[in-house]
Design a protein around this nucleic acid. Structure first.
Lengths: 231, 231
DNA sequence: GATTGTCTATCAACTAGTAGGTAGATACAA
DNA sequence: TTGTATCTACCTACTAGTTGATAGACAATC
């Protein structure tokens, strides 16, 4: 089967994807092996290859699934006011970080040049989806008068997506979600109409709402961190 | 010798570092091997180990050298007005991107969890240096009245560093430095006092001023991109 | 001036371990 | 009896790192 996500939520395929997703988000696509996944799922490498013939295919599936999860998460927050939805969008990122993970697509974007074409394409789709969703949001907020958008919405959207990815990247190196929260607040400040919208409540205390970064905060494995004799 | 950078600019050690630097910036620390460097420099792996006993040591040296190069680049632009220096700071990033590279420290920040402690520490030093340099700049710009800083300078500085790293990350996936330029312009806009400072001229046409991303735009090798049978 | 020793930089050939991937068998269910 | 899902056992290529040797440069000593 491989890529259809309409199989049982605890099927082997799903368990493989969940483990692999966490490994990509914490170690990068080049930072783990089939052996790592197999050990954690409790099957052999050969069985893994039955579900995903190549690592490239597994990687592509992960990105597509992640994008879909993001899409449905955004669908779920579509009923509110534009400025509130913007905060909810940022909170999606904060929740991923609260699970000690990097955004899956931000992570693989760093490794972009080393990845097979099928993964590269899927990564661009993720960003394009995010940017167009955000651009529409900003336009709407401007129309509604609840957001202050002084530049082309699609440019502001692009800027926001890149900035949020970067804030995650750095915050994760410091193991400090607070860094992300305060940076996100500043990024949103320039869009907020003073005295109208709620404060950018992106604080990362709100742990594990688990959306595009599910699974337990576990880190268990520590697998294969270069054994650095002379650390 | 190994880490003292006061050896001839085309010594073997320096050539190793230059090649390794480019590989880290384009493929990540886990995306290349000693064999890749050795082949490109034209020595054997064993000789490589003579200069850098372990890959971890090589990695740490790269980060320290990159930080030093950044420091002296910033020293060199210290005589101007604060808002101009801010533009020059952003241009440093744009120049790296123009060489089809990611910021070395942004790149390894993504792989943070897989890196030896000595490298992790060096990464944090880079970001702390950048943030404190920028915070001082913002304070000064505020005093001089040429920058509009409405929040704590160190918070704005942190936000800027993270945002710039993220903009690089995404722009590089699209192979489009223009994305970075336009995002950077928006980021600086909120700090600029309208009608006073020069426009954020971070355009990436200005290729290869080669500072913390030297070397030719070459890509030659294409080494070891997962051979993705079924791409 | 030849001889000796030391240091630097390099090499070929190796190790142990891991990478992604394959072949062929087996158990079970529809 | 066909398809699904798994296994054991293996493959080749590559990983970081080691060993022991060697060549040349320099300096001190005979």
């Amino acid at each position: 089967m491989t890529l259809n996500s309409h199989d049982a939520p605890d099927s082997t395929t799903t368990r493989i994807l969940d483990v692999a997703e966490r490994l990509v988000q914490t170690r990068g696509f080049n930072g783990f092996s089939y052996a790592d996944i197999a050990a954690e799922v409790g099957i052999t490498k050969a069985s893994l290859h039955y579900h995903f013939a190549t690592k490239a295919e597994l990687g592509r599936t992960l990105i597509v699934r992640y994008t879909q999860a993001f899409e449905s998460a955004l669908d779920r927050i579509s009923a509110k006011r534009a400025d509130e939805r913007l905060c909810a969008y940022v909170k999606l990122y904060a929740d991923v970080l609260a699970n000690e993970r990097m955004c899956l697509c931000g992570m693989v974007a760093a490794e972009y040049g080393t990845l097979p074409a099928q993964m590269q394409e899927a990564i661009r789709v993720f960003f394009e989806f995010n940017e167009s969703w955000l651009a529409r949001l900003l336009e709407q907020g401007k129309r509604e008068g609840c957001l202050s958008v002084r530049v082309a919405p699609h440019e502001a959207a692009r800027m926001l997506v890149g900035a949020l990815e970067g804030e995650m990247l750095v915050a994760r190196a410091y193991g400090d979600p607070g860094r992300f929260a305060s940076a996100a607040k500043l990024l949103l400040a320039q869009l907020q109409i003073s005295g109208k919208s709620a404060p950018a409540s992106t604080s990362a205390r709100t742990r594990a709402r688990r959306l595009p970064g599910r699974a337990r905060p576990a880190r268990a494995k520590v697998a294969r961190a270069p054994r650095a004799k002379n650390a």
